[in-house]
Design a protein around this nucleic acid. Structure first.
Length: 140
DNA sequence: GCCAACGTTGGC
DNA sequence: GCCAACGTTGGC
């Protein structure tokens, strides 16, 4: 089991929209960055991820899980681009802001801090646990 | 809206 | 294969 973080600008694709898709989930399409794509290729069914609102909000608002492994991105004709499908699992009881992440000494090496522009990021087990704790989720 | 950081492109 | 120009991301 691995953990990830998915960034989305809420006015393009919000947590509310993701939740409306329910258990069926939705393609995480539109990624045109090799590192982000490679992260998606590495994902396995059932892997968990944080859903982060960039640009507006700037906070982790929910938990998602991978419900389909990497496949061609239906929004691209270019076979280089692949994506996974993810579905909403639950809300973050208390959204964890970027500010709070940056202020936490345990999270200084998080990709969210060090690789600001990467839109699909790996999350370490201890980072996952810490953020769940901050967000009011007992079980990661 | 600005702009720094950074990824990508393309000429050489 | 280098690197300058350019485009995009995303925090502020």
């Amino acid at each position: 089991m691995a953990w990830w973080l998915f960034k989305s600008e809420p006015f393009k694709w919000s947590w509310a929209m993701q939740k409306k898709k329910g258990a069926a989930g939705e393609e995480w399409d539109g990624v045109r960055n090799y590192q982000a794509r490679n992260n998606m290729r590495a994902m396995k069914l059932g892997d968990k991820g944080f859903f982060y609102h960039s640009n507006e909000g700037l906070e982790i608002v929910g938990i998602v899980e991978v419900c389909r492994e990497a496949h061609p991105d239906s929004t691209s004709d270019d076979p280089r681009w692949e994506c996974v499908d993810i579905r909403a699992v639950c809300d973050m009881p208390r959204p964890v802001s970027l500010k709070a992440v940056k202020a936490n000494p345990c999270l200084q090496e998080m990709a969210l801090v060090t690789s600001m522009r990467l839109s699909v990021q790996p999350v370490r087990a201890e980072e996952w646990r810490e953020i769940c704790r901050m967000g009011g989720l007992s079980a990661g």
